[in-house]
Structure formats: structure tokens, C-alpha cells
């Protein structure tokens, strides 16, 4: 395999945060939707609905943090949805088996890190393109989960298991986890050495090598971190409802990747922030909810969502042209 060519022209680490423009577009779109729809039905802004939008989709935003890092380094992972399904099933199985709760919640994190560190190792040292590796991993995890569990639902979960149903400081725990992790990750990526290394590797591989960064170690590290976030996401996903389906959530990887790219992560690496990805997750959740509140014909729902995504993408283009 040859080295990954990078066509992105931003060489300097300081320029790594230029994804902010798209963040503003998405934020603007969310605010516009909130204001617009609240005129149709004021309940759209009620705490209950905000909980559904923010907390009910927090597991997507948490997984998007790790995915953002992976994409920034110039890679992609299409297996994350399957991994989350597997890790949720692991958590549920251990809980039913009577393991101590802290171990039940910790196990998905550890396994997530282990699986993705191995994936990262294969990408970095065995030079398998990440899309090929994760396509393969997607098949393995998806099929493997059914082979192992037979798709039997996990229903007899102990009462202490439901972490995502708890409140912290009067707020739903998933919302708090999402907010804290997103802000912490954004801050860490901007101010800490390893965080900035991620941007450096993504924006210019050769330059990163030249200043002594181990591209391989960074790749493994980023995949491992991504596994950690997938594990946290899986715990939120598993503990939200009374049953666990033991199957791979349909199209979850696509939702996560879409959130990252619409949030302003360039797929060519080197650009983007986790805040954008979290906002994009909220943006999709807001649209889905708004469609119901505004009585858009359910048959046209997906067309409207697709159209809105398209408009957001093109709005960013228009904005950049206006600046140029």
C-alpha cells in the first residue's frame, strides 16, 4: 500500500479548527427549527421533548466523538454500529449473569478498546485501508452476534442496570454524559499534545512524520479511543430500555458518520470538531421530531430530511464562497 495521499492544503495545526463554519450553520439550523416549530406547537420546546431530542440520541453523539477522531486522521469506520450492538449485548448478558454492576458497565468499554485497538493495529501496521477492514469487521460482528446469541432478546435485566434512565443534577444522565464528553474531547483535542497530534496526522501525514510523530501509534491510539466511546455509547444504548434486542441497530453506523460529516468533519482528514458532530446529531433528532410536530406527510419524511441535509451542506458552500 502506498501512503495515504492528502489533498487538504491546511498544513498548520492552528488551521485545524476551520470546521467551525459548518458548526455555525448547523447550530443556526437547529435554532431556526426550534423557533419555527414552536410556533406550530409550543410543546416542541417542552422539557419532555427536549429530553427526547437531546437525551434519546445522546448515544449517537457519544459514538460520533470517536468517529470524528477517526475521520480526522483520514480513516473511517463502518463497523461501529455493529460494535455497539455487540457491546450492548455483552453488557446485558453480564448483567443477567449477576456480575457486579460496575463491571457490567465497564466491560463494554474495555472490550470496545480492545477490538478497535486491534482494528487500528491492522490499519496502521498491516496497511489494510480502514474502509476495507471495517467493512470486513462489520460483517464479522453482525453475523457473529446472531451466530452466538441466536437473536434471543435479553429481557430479565436487574433493576440496577438502567444507567441511562437515571438523573444527574436533575438532568437525564445521557444528556450529561454527552455534554461533558463532547466538551472534554473538544478541549483535549485543541490543547493537549495527543489531541493535536490527531489533527497533525490528519492534515499532513508527511509533515507529522517529519516532526517526529509516530503516525502508526497515533492511528492505534485513535482507534482505541474510538472503541472507548463506542463502549460508552453501548452502555447508554443498552440501559435506556427494559429489553436489549441483541441485534445490530439498523443503519446506526450511517447515522453516526452522517452526523460527523454534516457537523463539519472533512472526510479527507485534518478538519473538524467533535462539537460539530454532536450538534449534527441533535440537528437530525430535531428534524425527526419536528416532522412529527409539523404533520409533514410521513411518506415524504425521508425526502424532507434528505433535502434538509442537502441544504445544510450547500449552505456551508455558500457561506465559504461569501467569505472568499
Amino acid at each position: 500500500m502506498t501512503a495515504i495521499p492528502h489533498r487538504s492544503s491546511q498544513g498548520r495545526i492552528g488551521r485545524a479548527l476551520v470546521g467551525h463554519g459548518q458548526v455555525l450553520v448547523v447550530l443556526g439550523a437547529i435554532i431556526a427549527l426550534f423557533i419555527g416549530v414552536s410556533f406550530v406547537n409550543a410543546r416542541f420546546l417542552s422539557p419532555a421533548n427536549l429530553t427526547t431530542i437531546f437525551s434519546g440520541n445522546a448515544y449517537i453523539a457519544v459514538a460520533a466523538i470517536g468517529m470524528t477522531m477517526v475521520i480526522i486522521t483520514g480513516h473511517i469506520d463502518v463497523s461501529v454500529g455493529a460494535l455497539i450492538g455487540v457491546l450492548a449485548t455483552v453488557a446485558g448478558t453480564l448483567a443477567v449473569a449477576g456480575w457486579p454492576m460496575w463491571l457490567v458497565w465497564l466491560a463494554p468499554l474495555v472490550i470496545g478498546v480492545a477490538v478497535n485497538a486491534a482494528a487500528g493495529w491492522l490499519v496502521a501496521y498491516a496497511h489494510i485501508p480502514s474502509i476495507v477492514l471495517t467493512l470486513g469487521l462489520l460483517s464479522i460482528l453482525k453475523g457473529g452476534l446472531i451466530v452466538v446469541t441466536g437473536g434471543e432478546w435479553i429481557t430479565d435485566l436487574p433493576p440496577g442496570f438502567f444507567l441511562a434512565q437515571r438523573d444527574v443534577f436533575g438532568l437525564p444522565l445521557p444528556l450529561v454524559v454527552m455534554t461533558v464528553l463532547t466538551l472534554a474531547a473538544a478541549w483535549w483535542m485543541a490543547h493537549f499534545r495527543f489531541g493535536r497530534t490527531i489533527y497533525a496526522v490528519g492534515s499532513n501525514l508527511e509533515a507529522a512524520r517529519a516532526i517526529g510523530i509516530s503516525v502508526e501509534r497515533t492511528t492505534v491510539g485513535v482507534f482505541a479511543l474510538h472503541g472507548l466511546f463506542a463502549g460508552i455509547s453501548a452502555v447508554l444504548f443498552a440501559t435506556q430500555l427494559t429489553t436489549i434486542q441483541s441485534t445490530v441497530p439498523p443503519n446506526l453506523e450511517l447515522v453516526i458518520i452522517t452526523a460527523c460529516v454534516i457537523g463539519g468533519v472533512s472526510i479527507l482528514g485534518g478538519v473538524g470538531t467533535v462539537i460539530g458532530a454532536a450538534l449534527a446529531t441533535i440537528f437530525f433528532a430535531t428534524i425527526t421530531s419536528a416532522m412529527i410536530f409539523t404533520n409533514v406527510s410521513a411518506y415524504w419524511l425521508r425526502a424532507v430530511i434528505g433535502g434538509l441535509i442537502l441544504i445544510t451542506v450547500l449552505a456551508d458552500v455558500a457561506r465559504r464562497r461569501g467569505q472568499a
Partner: peptide, 25 residues
């Protein structure tokens, strides 16, 4: 519009499927 292909077709993937669902009810 110089939109990266992954982003452009991710958006149209939802949009074209939506058109198919909408037209056909």
C-alpha cells in the same frame, strides 16, 4: 459546489430514497 463526494451522496442517498417513498406513498 465542491462538496466532497461522501457528503454529497450521503445526503442524496436519503433524498432519493425519500423521493421514492414519497412518490409511491
Amino acid at each position: 459546489f465542491r462538496v466532497p463526494p461522501l457528503i454529497a451522496t450521503l445526503a442524496t442517498m436519503a433524498f432519493y430514497r425519500g423521493l421514492a417513498e414519497g412518490f409511491s406513498q
